[in-house]
Amino acid sequence: MKNNRYIVIVGCGRLGSHLANHLSRSGNSVVVIDKNEPTFNDLSPDFSGFRVHGDATQMAVLKEAKVNQADILIATTHEDNVNLMVAQVAQGIFRVPHVLARVFDPKRMEVYAQLGIDTICPTSVAAEMFLQAVANGAAGRKGANP
């Protein structure tokens, strides 16, 4: 995996700041966008990327973050609709080759999968892991106590 990509991360909450710190540390050029400036405090001291303060649903803000040059855009805000809109704009208008959006609502995810937007649904991922743990736990107990 090359480590000198230009990556735009929208939303600097727990997930966004974690990704930004990690990707910046591994040598990528990272830009973080958030409309609440204090969230930038979650970036680690060795974060070497840029911070853009603004609402990513506005074209002007995406242009300021030079989304047109990005290799990857990851939309991680806590609002599904913001992530979906930003992902579509990045993919459809700025032609970003790789776009990912966090979407909490599994029903919304289906529709956007049809539109060719790559989404990650924390709800489905967590549910699957819980279900697996429950199944394994049940199997384990059965194994221990036949």
Binding site: E79, N81, R108
Partner: peptide
């Protein structure tokens, strides 16, 4: 704006509403 976009897309894609219109605040 993000809500208006997603509402229209869901309506037309999932429910086949023939005409949708979204307000662009920006």
């Amino acid at each position: 704006d993000q809500d208006n976009l997603v509402i229209c897309q869901l309506a037309s894609r999932k429910f086949s509403v023939p005409r949708t219109v979204a307000l662009a605040n920006d």
